[in-house]
């Protein structure tokens, strides 16, 4: 300790130490310059910001099927919900208004019902009650909930036109302003 303090006050020795630190630091930065693996990759899919959104195909409550990757080129919100989850119910009207305002501009909403821990009937009643017009895929097996590592309801993923997740919101309800802001910046990006 004494030695260190003595060195600290000695201009020449401290300068030598600083020079050494700088050279080692700079060399380390150079050595750790980025290989391809060091940044979030649009090629690896994972339910995380900066990664490609994991793809899925699900049956729709409205009939037919939807495949996430078919919506490439549009901004997509994937919202995982259940009819018994109060914050999920609370944010649905805001999602509906957002959808009405932005669908023409290229917004899709996939409100994936966690049917494996809900009932299709209760989900249908809720959708009818609120008059929701966006797509409601039914996750009967729980595969999509597992794929998106669902730990909290609702969970919402904002996916850009290239299929990359740009924002993840766990829990809710989200305010309409939060939704609008999240979507607005993605809308302005070129496909």
């Amino acid at each position: 300790m004494e030695h260190l303090l003595e060195m600290m006050g000695d201009r020449k020795r401290w300068a030598i130490l600083m020079g050494a630190v700088f050279i080692i630091g700079a060399a380390w930065i150079w050595l750790s310059a980025v290989p391809a693996s060091a940044t979030p990759s649009g090629e690896i899919s994972s339910p995380l910001e900066g990664f490609a959104a994991p793809d899925f195909t699900l049956e729709l409550m409205q009939g037919g099927e939807v495949t996430l990757s078919d919506l490439r080129g549009r901004v997509v919100i994937v919202n995982l919900w259940a009819s018994w989850c109060p914050p999920c119910r609370a944010e649905m009207p805001a999602l509906q208004r957002l959808y009405e305002d932005n669908h023409e501009r290229g917004l899709e909403i996939l409100a994936v019902n966690s049917t494996f821990q809900d009932s299709a009937g209760a989900a249908q009643d809720f959708v009818d009650e609120l008059g929701l017009t966006f797509l409601v895929p039914l996750d009967r097996s729980g595969d999509v909930s597992r794929l998106y590592q669902l730990r909290a309801l609702p969970s919402t993923f904002f996916i850009d036109r290239h299929g990359v997740i740009r924002q993840v919101v766990l829990g809710g309800p989200m305010s309409e302003a939060t939704l609008q802001v999240a979507v607005e910046s993605l809308m302005d990006e070129m496909p």
């Binding site: 930065i29 750790s32 693996s37 940044t39």
Partner: peptide, 29 residues
């Protein structure tokens, strides 16, 4: 695996850290 990259491959946080380290060493002296 999530570094912000500048100047063709260098990690921004490292450049900032080295600058802070050098300034702190000067201040210690």
């Amino acid at each position: 695996g999530d570094s912000a990259i500048v100047l063709g491959g260098l990690r921004l946080a490292q450049l900032v850290s080295l600058a802070i380290l050098m300034l702190a060493l000067v201040a210690l002296h």
